[in-house]
Amino acid sequence: MSCVISAFIVHKLVRDNNQLRAEQGPGILPMNDSIQRLMDKLHEKYIQQGGRSFGTFETDQVTFPISKFLEASNIVTNHTQFYDLSLNILQHLVAKASHTSATGGWVVICLYQHSNHQNLSVAVVNEVVGAGINENFEVEESIYIDLSKLRHAGRIDLTKWQNGANNYVSFIKAIRDSTYFKEFLGCNTTINSVVESNNVINAIHRYCHDNNLNYDDRKAIESRAYDFLKSASQANAPINVEHLANAAAPEDSENLKEFLSSDEFQINDGFVPDLRSLKKLLELTTKSSFWNIKINREAFNNGADYDPETKILTIPVTDPSDQAEFAKEVQGIDEDD
Score class of each variant (00 low, 15 high):
residue 266 Q to R: 12
residue 273 P to F: 00
residue 277 S to K: 08
residue 236 N to P: 01
residue 158 L to I: 10
residue 245 A to K: 03
residue 281 L to S: 02
residue 148 S to G: 14
residue 179 T to P: 05
residue 204 I to N: 00
residue 147 L to W: 07
residue 231 S to M: 12
residue 157 D to A: 09
residue 185 L to S: 00
residue 283 E to M: 15
residue 258 E to S: 12
residue 146 D to P: 08
residue 200 V to H: 03
residue 225 A to T: 05
residue 189 T to L: 05
residue 265 F to C: 07
residue 154 G to M: 04
residue 146 D to M: 15
residue 177 D to R: 05
residue 164 G to D: 03
residue 233 S to F: 00
residue 159 T to S: 09
residue 216 D to I: 15
residue 220 A to C: 11
residue 189 T to C: 07
residue 267 I to Y: 01
residue 226 Y to H: 10
residue 173 K to E: 07
residue 222 E to Y: 02
residue 190 T to D: 10
residue 215 Y to M: 12
residue 224 R to V: 05
residue 229 L to K: 03
residue 144 Y to T: 15
residue 193 S to F: 08
residue 282 L to I: 04
residue 185 L to C: 04
residue 277 S to R: 06
residue 218 R to E: 13
residue 170 S to K: 05
residue 264 E to S: 13
residue 278 L to H: 00
residue 156 I to K: 00
residue 179 T to C: 08
residue 201 I to Q: 02
residue 149 K to V: 12
residue 192 N to F: 03
residue 283 E to Q: 15
residue 259 F to E: 04
residue 242 E to R: 09
residue 283 E to L: 13
residue 166 N to A: 07
residue 197 S to G: 08
residue 174 A to F: 06
residue 212 N to T: 12
residue 282 L to M: 06
residue 187 C to L: 11
residue 259 F to Q: 00
residue 197 S to H: 07
residue 233 S to I: 05
residue 273 P to T: 03
residue 243 H to E: 14
residue 257 K to H: 15
residue 238 P to C: 11
residue 187 C to W: 02
residue 205 H to P: 05
residue 243 H to R: 09
residue 176 R to Y: 13
residue 260 L to S: 00
residue 273 P to M: 00
residue 283 E to P: 06
residue 170 S to D: 07
residue 263 D to R: 03
residue 219 K to S: 09
residue 147 L to T: 11
residue 211 N to F: 07
residue 177 D to L: 14
residue 250 P to G: 08
residue 198 N to T: 14
residue 150 L to K: 12
residue 159 T to A: 09
residue 170 S to R: 02
residue 273 P to I: 02
residue 219 K to A: 09
residue 193 S to M: 08
residue 154 G to Q: 00
residue 246 N to H: 09
residue 282 L to N: 01
residue 222 E to A: 06
residue 184 F to S: 05
residue 192 N to A: 07
residue 192 N to H: 08
residue 234 Q to D: 09
residue 200 V to E: 04
residue 257 K to T: 14
residue 199 N to P: 12
residue 248 A to K: 01
residue 227 D to E: 12
residue 274 D to I: 06
residue 194 V to L: 10
residue 238 P to D: 05
residue 172 I to T: 01
residue 229 L to M: 10
residue 250 P to A: 13
residue 258 E to K: 14
residue 149 K to C: 08
residue 239 I to Y: 04
residue 262 S to V: 08
residue 155 R to N: 15
residue 267 I to E: 01
